[in-house]
Design a binder for these strands. Structure first.
Lengths: 148, 148
DNA sequence: ATATATATGACTATTTTACTCAGATATCTA
DNA sequence: TAGATATCTGAGTAAAATAGTCATATATAT
């Protein structure tokens, strides 16, 4: 029951993008800078940013001095958005990826446990929808959101 | 972000144990019967029931006519109990297995994302604590909880 | 031109998962 | 007491997922 490193790195990278963008004017932020600050391989970040770009969370600027910028303000990008972009659907088991019962397995009594998984999924989605990048990058007493 | 088959099978097996116990008098239920109804290898179930027994959720009766019985009434066994028994701690990332910040990583800014993982963990635990075996095994309009 | 950066597809080592196997121990029934 | 039935325990293994790399193409600033 773990978030993969894709999800963990993806969220860290997006937070870092917020900080670097905030600190460095209006230009795009390179993966090289994010990679250095977050100590993540920039090649791996490239892979993750494919997903983030595909989901419309960031926009890219190619070429020298290029990089990435947030496609929307941090307040409008939720943790759920990011996880879905790099990890796929938020669902504890395959059979509750959609609400359709037909898409589920063929066991007569599948419903016995499905109930539990649906409730778990819904609470996860609700929580992750309610947290956005601005929340996480707010400077606090421990200096979080201000390290750059 | 998936529950492993250990968790899925573990929950199904426990639900089935409730049903078979309810149907079959007061004696213990063999893994063979659970395995047959749920279409899970009984050898795999043995492995899972090690964990369930270790966590005090079931009691075993060895020898012929032996098997397992619930250690507590179904109302007092939560889905969280079962998942913890077969899968380990409920935590989306390693660093929030405990609430101690010291047990976390050594990044200066770990807190930026830790906040999100803690909230996710708490909502997962709250939800899974709130569902018990009696809830899942209640007979309903679709016949769930009554297939035996 | 050249350096810098993203874009894309494929590839690989490692780890985790999902099981299986063999043999020991306990208990009921005949 | 013999035999059948179950749990108990440790170890082993094939397949799948994860985590990360590599090579190469393309775009843009200086």
């Amino acid at each position: 029951m773990r978030i993969s490193t894709r999800g963990q790195y993806g969220l860290r990278a997006m937070c870092r993008l917020v900080l670097l963008q905030r600190a460095g004017g209006s230009g795009p932020v390179s993966l090289r800078d994010i990679a250095e600050k977050e100590d993540i391989s920039s090649q791996y970040l490239e892979q993750l940013f494919r997903g983030l770009r595909g989901a419309g969370l960031v926009e890219s600027v190619r070429g020298a001095k290029g990089g990435y910028i947030l496609a929307r303000p941090p307040e409008e990008i939720s943790v759920a958005d990011i996880l879905r972009a790099v990890e796929g659907p938020i669902a504890p088991v395959e059979c509750v990826e959609s609400d359709s019962v037909d898409a589920c397995c063929d066991r007569k009594d599948y419903c016995m446990t499905r109930e539990a998984w649906i409730r778990l999924r819904d609470s996860m989605v609700e929580t992750l929808d309610s947290i956005n990048l601005a929340d996480l990058c707010k400077p606090g007493e421990l200096g979080r959101g201000s390290t750059c």
